[in-house]
Amino acid sequence: MSLESPKEDWFEPPHGAEKIWIGIALAWCLVMFLMMPYWHLFGQQNTSGETFRVSPRDFEERVDEFVEANQVGELNGVPVVEPPPGGDAFLLGRMWEWYPVLKLRAGETYRIHLSALDLQHGFSLQPLNMNFRAIPGYDYVLTMTPQEPGEYTIVCNEFCGVGHHLMVGKLIVE
């Protein structure tokens, strides 16, 4: 029994159903393992490995330049910015807003640079439910292809102080 020392020669290979279950479980673990490289090669949704170090101030400057060059309007006081299709777009998370509002075209691919200014923030695109982290000091490049046109919401899903729940931004797809 499990509360006492086992008999001297307790070493024995598994038998019967136990042995078969170990085999099946191992095979299933291998399937799960292989699904990841498989999707990496053939799937459409993969997390990016493209990252650059950047100081939060420098990133903020780049965002400002980007906004100045490409602003097309304003939504609730936040600039609406339309990056060139296929080009670079910048998105900054800071207490407690997502800046600016990006206006993208369906079917085009963009390099979205995501970072945070002050604390860690969580980029959560709704109602699609796609989630990425924004960390100060890192420029995270997500190469995304928006699909259906519409107005999307960006929620912050990493705690960033008392205004965290108010940190809700917009993203427009045309």
Binding site: I22, A25, L26, C29, L30, M32, F33, M36, P37, H40, N46, T47, S48, G49, T51, L114, N131, F132, R133, I135, Y138, D139, Y140
Partner: peptide, 24 residues
């Protein structure tokens, strides 16, 4: 898994190989 800085192969290796034997 969804943050900057780590390569995909690093993520796959560490979640897959290392974790799934504990799952086993």
């Amino acid at each position: 898994l969804v943050e900057p800085g780590m390569s995909s192969s690093w993520k796959i290796w560490n979640t897959g190989y290392v974790m799934y034997l504990a799952v086993l």
